[in-house]
Design a binder for these strands. Structure first.
Length: 214
DNA sequence: ATCCCGAGGG
DNA sequence: CCCTCTGGAT
């Protein structure tokens, strides 16, 4: 897909979702980082319910490290994979204190070396908190990139590079919100609702589900 | 039953 | 590449 079409595609999605919001609203690097770690394979509702109390108790790496794994676990017991996440959050907080002066590093290699942090999570922090021109490719964005031709690729890395090459740098941040919302409610993995997709004109994926009572 | 805004380990 | 971790929503 050309850059012009990509801009039109993203523009259509932005009009359909004029007020994007999610746990990505954390701008502080540390709370953003922890919120994203907690989000993996969990519902956003669960994360949004648990994080306010957790961050009130421990807003910084030092405070989180002091809080400890057991107490972190008590705060996040209602979300999936909480045991390994409590372990990772405790370990990454200690690592930030001991190796980075209690500050989230503005550096991909250092971020990905933290426990529980992979390329996707590192990209969220790099883009949302530090303004780097990168995209965090989750399952939704990976699927949309391939279905639509917006950014085809066999690996998340390839899709990421295609998106960064086609979407204007100043729109990458909001593109996360729009693409994820679109992937969740319209361009779903199963039974995509193509008949109500605002970006269908730029999409090459054939509608496999007929519109209800149409 | 099946899926989720992943990451680590085998 | 495949498996596992895990509660909650649908």
């Amino acid at each position: 897909m050309s850059r012009a079409d990509a801009a039109a595609f993203i523009g259509a999605l932005s009009l359909a979702n004029p007020s994007p919001r999610s746990e990505l609203h954390y701008h502080d690097p540390f709370t953003l980082l922890v919120a994203v770690v907690l989000s993996a394979q969990a519902t956003d509702a669960g994360v949004n319910k648990a994080t306010p109390a957790l961050f009130a108790a421990a807003p910084t790496p030092a405070a989180m490290a002091a809080l400890g794994e057991a107490e972190i676990g008590r705060h996040i017991r209602t979300i999936g994979l909480w045991q390994s996440k409590a372990r990772h959050v405790a370990a990454l907080s200690r690592a930030l204190v001991e190796q980075h002066g209690g500050v989230v590093p503005h550096d991909r290699t250092a971020l990905e070396a933290l426990p529980g942090v992979g390329r996707k999570t590192a990209n969220v922090v790099l883009n949302v908190a530090f303004g780097e021109a990168t995209m965090a490719v989750d399952t939704h964005i990976f699927r949309i990139g391939n279905r639509t031709g917006l950014a085809p690729g066999k690996t998340p890395r390839a899709v990421e590079e295609g998106l960064v090459a086609r979407i204007p740098a100043d729109k990458l941040r909001d593109a996360h919100h729009w693409l994820i919302l679109h992937g969740r409610y319209v361009c779903k993995a199963r039974r995509p609702e193509c008949w109500r997709c605002v970006a269908a004109a730029w999409c090459r994926y054939p509608a496999k589900t007929p519109a209800p009572d149409a």
